[in-house]
């Protein structure tokens, strides 16, 4: 892993060097990013003021779900958001051959080659929202709550890494598989609301098949001590790390399964 961290650092330095060569583009991008977050933040305030309660979850509790989701997406996106674009372009052009002629494992290499530091801003946004949410609710935050929160971040990161990997895999086989990302991420917005507002089959889907509930719902529920455990009972709180890890492990296996079916292109 030290080797890939080091490669990530080398690529990051190169990325900075390249970025600095086009200063005006860099500045415009940062301004656009700040505007994006401003709009995001404004939307959350509108949401907070528009709803009074969702199935027993008040507006600040819903804000916590949103914040956890942003954090999980930031962790997955930091490693894989740029990777999915690189893989799609390189597989279609045949340039992906180059990765396979290097003495590297493709998955960690791609992750560290394509780190996307723009997601650090997501992390900042998430932490700010968590502080506002917990502060407004007057929730006691001790060591146990911080550990639960960190475990929630890990679960969210694992689920999003898994979702990205499930979206990347088919590109190796079919070359063009843009719809996979849309299919896998279509529940992302829904996962920012309490799971209990959805019908049972969606609850099951978001708990064991595409486990979005592990990203925000169960970690926040555990910290706030809410009792709507739904169909699965309290045990699901303890199973969340296992389900997240299993989902990510299956996604890693799927990535390699598809990679072995990579066909390259004609020269």
């Amino acid at each position: 892993m030290r080797y890939y961290l080091h490669l990530g650092w080398v690529y990051w330095k190169m990325h900075l060097k390249k970025t600095w060569m086009f200063k005006s583009s860099f500045i415009i991008n940062r301004v656009v990013q700040i505007l994006n977050y401003f709009v995001d933040f404004a939307l959350i305030w509108i949401m907070v003021n528009a709803f009074q309660a969702l199935n027993g979850w008040n507006t600040y509790e819903v804000m916590l779900l949103y914040a956890m989701n942003v954090m999980g997406y930031a962790i997955g996106g930091f490693f894989l958001d740029r990777t999915i674009l690189t893989v799609r372009t390189d597989v279609q052009s045949g340039a992906f051959d180059d990765v396979l002629t290097k003495p590297v494992s493709p998955l960690p290499y791609l992750c560290f080659q394509n780190l996307n530091p723009n997601f650090i801003a997501h992390v900042t946004l998430s932490i700010a929202l968590l502080c506002i949410g917990f502060g407004s609710l007057g929730t006691y935050i001790g060591i146990v709550e911080i550990l639960k929160l960190l475990l929630g971040f890990v679960c969210g990161g694992l689920v999003y890494v898994g979702l990205f990997l499930f979206a990347i895999g088919p590109i190796f086989v079919f070359r063009k598989a843009d719809s996979m990302r849309r299919v896998l991420f279509f529940l992302r917005e829904q996962s920012m609301y309490p799971l209990s507002v959805f019908p049972l089959f969606i609850q099951i889907l978001m708990t064991v098949i595409l486990p979005y509930a592990m990203i925000g719902y169960f970690p926040v529920q555990s910290i706030l001590g809410k009792q709507d455990y739904l169909f699965f009972g309290r045990a699901v709180l303890y199973l969340a790390p296992v389900i997240s890890l299993a989902f990510c492990a299956i996604a890693v296996w799927f990535f390699h399964f598809c990679l072995r079916r990579y066909k390259s292109t004609g020269s």
Binding site: K18, M21, F22, G94, A95, D97, S267
Partner: peptide, 10 residues
């Protein structure tokens, strides 16, 4: 591969 480049363009 003569028709593909691995160089960092910038």
């Amino acid at each position: 591969f003569g028709q593909r480049s691995r160089l960092v363009w910038e």
